[in-house]
Design a binder for these strands. Structure first.
Lengths: 201, 201
DNA sequence: CAAATATTAGAACCTGGTACTAATGTTAAG
DNA sequence: CTTAACATTAGTACCAGGTTCTAATATTTG
């Protein structure tokens, strides 16, 4: 096979279509990042080197083989789906006295904040309170009818929100639930919910 | 090999540890559902049949091999992660006149409803309205300060929510935004938002 | 030039299968 | 009882997409 010329060291390349080892590694990482489903064979075409080189490169870079990459993604998504389907309620309900009160904890993660400011999007804070307000009502069907809410201070990435719900009164189809959300001792959110319920029980 | 005895037809089994074909199929589906990462070899242990039987069963049931299952899960999660990271805002903003009005569309899917009733959880409907109310404000930083909301009618699985936001007035750090959400021509949600903004611009 | 490094080639082996052929076990129907 | 139909098992060849190893060759640098 005719070589285009080596250029792995400090010398410049004299053929365009062959990259230095460093550059090839960068490109390799980039290609796999763009498309994790690419095989080594496909990579040989993109990088114009032998399949052995691709494999040595993956070794050096600690990039696992295609099947292992797929397995990891599959496991990741499996965990996510499981936690997501469990996450019918936003936040972990840690205490619940039906028709009386409840407490839930919710940690603000990357996906909950504005990327610019790292401040939580309001609807996540609301979602925790709303979930709890619905959960605390001891009824087959409980739906939010209306709410009056105040965001008292910004909640930042990494902060743990502790929501406390109190059922203020139940009359027929309507229940009034008050929710206060705290970060440590500071109140960050307050909401008055009217929850519609299926009357029974 | 000693047979425990067949029982695929209408006859009863006379050995406990061997299931009829139908029951084995059920169990097989169940096992793979519980753990999609199970190999055929592991299944032979659980079901006490040969690996060929397992493979014939998978064929009949249209269950792909382990690697194919993992690939599908990986692809699924890849799509999800990509769409999720784009989904900073709940709902698709289809029209936006900054500091004036905006429209967004949001379809209620499985993950947004109570599994029992198939009625949308309130916080998703709220999230769409809240996202839009924040988006419509032409400012570097815009955060929900308070809101007064009404859920006028239940929104069901599959329904398309069309939210329309109108900026009512802007004074200093506070902007008032009114949002109405419709399913076809019916109003299902109404909210008055007070949005805090960084004053500038 | 020689040593060091980079690249390529090739063979053996692995997992978790598919596809196919064939034998054997079991049951129901004639 | 026999036979056809179905269920199960066994075994072989083959595949993708690798790993692991040895060895040869190319290129660069000292």
């Amino acid at each position: 096979m005719k070589y285009g010329g080596y250029n792995s060291g400090r010398r410049s390349c004299f053929v365009i279509d062959r990259l230095s080892k460093k550059d090839r590694h960068k490109r390799l990482v980039q290609l796999i990042d763009e498309n994790p489903f690419v095989t080594d064979r496909e990579l040989t075409r993109q990088l114009k080197v032998s399949i052995q080189t691709i494999r040595l490169d993956r070794m050096e870079l600690g990039i696992p083989e295609l099947r292992e990459r797929m397995k990891q993604m599959a496991e990741h998504s499996y965990d996510q789906v499981r936690s997501l389907s469990l996450e019918e309620v936003i936040g972990d309900v840690v205490d619940l006295q039906l028709d009386k009160s409840g407490i839930s904890i919710f940690e603000i993660r990357e996906e909950h904040v504005f990327s610019k400011t790292r401040i939580a999007r309001g609807h996540y804070v609301f979602a925790q309170a709303n979930s709890l307000a619905v959960a605390v009502i001891n009824d087959e069907i409980a739906l939010t009818s209306s709410a009056d809410i105040r965001f008292l201070r910004q909640v930042k990435l990494g902060e743990k929100c502790i929501a406390k719900a109190y059922v203020r009164n139940i009359a027929g189809q309507k229940a009034k639930v008050e929710v206060f959300t705290y970060v440590s001792d500071e109140m960050v959110f307050q909401g008055n919910f009217v929850i519609y319920r299926s009357a029974g029980e």
